[in-house]
C-alpha cells in the first residue's frame, strides 16, 4: 500500500485539505468577525421615541431581529448583564417587525427567551420605527442611556458574530450601570440586518 504514488496522493490531498480548511476557516472567520452596519446614533434619548424612559435608572435598549440566530448570543449576554445589574437598569428589547409581517412573525423562541430575563421588557417594534429612531440597523445593537438620557454606550455585546462569551461591549455596559469609567463606549455589532437595506452592510444610510 505504501507506494510512492500513494504517498504523493496523500501529500497532495493533505495540502489541498489544509488549503481548503484554511479557506473555509477564513470565510467563517470573516463572516463571524464582520460587524453589521450602524445607523446615525443620537447622543441623547430621542424624544420621539414611544418608549417611556424612566429617569431613576439608566436605560438599556436592545434592538433585535426576532429570527436572527446570531442574536441568541446577544440575548444570552444580555441575560448575563441583567444578572449582574438587576434593579439598577431599565432594560428593553425591541424586536423589529418588518412591514407586512403577520402578528405571529415575531413570536419566536428568541423573543420568549428575552422575555424570560428578569427586569427586561420586551416590545415589538412595528416596521422598525424605533430602530430607525435609535439608529440601529443590526440585530443585537444595544444602547445604554444614563438617567439623564445621555447615550453612554452603543454597540454589540458579543465578541464576534453569534459568539457567546466575554466581550468589550458587555464590560462597558456593566461599567456604565455601576457608573464606572467605560473603556470602550462603541463596539462593533454582530448580527443579522434589521432592515432589508442591502447597503447597510456597507455602513451606508438606508432609508425606508
Amino acid at each position: 500500500m505504501s507506494t510512492r504514488k500513494n504517498i504523493l496522493i496523500t501529500a497532495l490531498l493533505g495540502a489541498t485539505w489544509m488549503v481548503a480548511l484554511a479557506f473555509g476557516a477564513r470565510v467563517l472567520f470573516k463572516y463571524e468577525t464582520t460587524p453589521g452596519s450602524v445607523g446615525p446614533i443620537s447622543a441623547a434619548w430621542p424624544s420621539v421615541s414611544m418608549i417611556r424612559r424612566q429617569t431613576d435608572k439608566p436605560t438599556l435598549l436592545m434592538l433585535a431581529h426576532p429570527r436572527c440566530p446570531c442574536t441568541r448570543a446577544s440575548i444570552g449576554e444580555l441575560a448575563e448583564i441583567m444578572a449582574h445589574s438587576v434593579g439598577k437598569v431599565n432594560a428593553f428589547v425591541l424586536f423589529v417587525k418588518p412591514p407586512g409581517a403577520d402578528v405571529t412573525w415575531d413570536d419566536t423562541d428568541l423573543r420568549r427567551s428575552a422575555a424570560d430575563i428578569p427586569g427586561v421588557t420586551v416590545l415589538s417594534d412595528e416596521n422598525g420605527v424605533e430602530a430607525a429612531r435609535f439608529g440601529a440597523e443590526t440585530s443585537g445593537h444595544t444602547l445604554v442611556f444614563d438617567r439623564n438620557g445621555t447615550l453612554v454606550f452603543s454597540g454589540g455585546i458579543t465578541a464576534s458574530r453569534g459568539h457567546a462569551g466575554p466581550n468589550a461591549g458587555e464590560n462597558a455596559i456593566l461599567a456604565a450601570v455601576k457608573q464606572e469609567p467605560i473603556q470602550y463606549s462603541r463596539t462593533p455589532v454582530f448580527g443579522c440586518s434589521l432592515t432589508k437595506c442591502k447597503s447597510a452592510t456597507e455602513g451606508k444610510l438606508c432609508s425606508k
Binding site: 473555509g24 431581529h65 440566530p69 418588518p98 412591514p99 407586512g100 440586518s193
Partner: peptide
C-alpha cells in the same frame, strides 16, 4: 441557525453551509 435574516427576507445561514462544506472537508480527508 438555519437561516440568516435581512429584515423580512432570509437565506440559508452560512453556518449550514459551513457545517456541510467545512465539516465535510474536515472529516473526509
Amino acid at each position: 441557525s438555519p437561516r440568516t435574516w435581512d429584515g423580512a427576507s432570509s437565506q440559508i445561514h452560512i453556518h449550514v453551509w459551513s457545517a456541510i462544506f467545512i465539516g465535510g472537508a474536515i472529516s473526509l480527508f
